[in-house]
Amino acid sequence: MANLTINGKTFTLDVEPDTPLLWAIRENAGLTGTKYGCGIAQCGACTVHMDGVATRSCGISVAEAAGKKITTIEGLASGTTLHKVQEAWIAQDVPQCGYCQSGMIMAVAALLNDKPKPTDADIDEAITNICRCGTFQQVREAIHTIASA
């Protein structure tokens, strides 16, 4: 059993302590917006915030996540008000297949939290998510649009 705080709600989940956080979120908490892409923390599709830090949830066990404040894509908006990254993603028409975008949006939201006006170099360093559709040009433009707002 593990107690996890996800999107401000406490979940008591029947999982082994070494279960990756990703699978506890998807299968036990039932929040499927966080995606499985590689399982080895390479692609970033499973990115969530853990105490505000962008974290690849496939590489973290529920034991390590216990007691931390976890935010998934479902918890990024404030009620019905979308987060500014989500708004920008819609305005810029960023997603193609969209599968990697939960993780991409979470990574960008964390970056903008740390650096509200990131340079291209900041973006290159912080955003290392894989997008096989190749939305990078729109991702970069959308980040700069938010930063200059």
């Binding site: 039932g30 929040l31 499927t32 917006g33 966080t34 995606k35 499985y36 998934t72 894509i73 479902e74 990024l76 908006a77 979308l82 989500q86 993603w89 819609i90 028409d93 960023v94 997603p95 969209g98 599968y99 975008q101 939960s102 949006i105």
Partner: peptide, 21 residues
């Protein structure tokens, strides 16, 4: 014109095959 399938893709609500319950 903007894509019709974008809003659900930015909130994690799009159901892909992997998300079927």
């Amino acid at each position: 014109v903007k894509r019709l399938d974008t809003p659900d893709k930015v909130t994690g609500t799009t159901v892909y095959g992997i998300d079927v319950k």
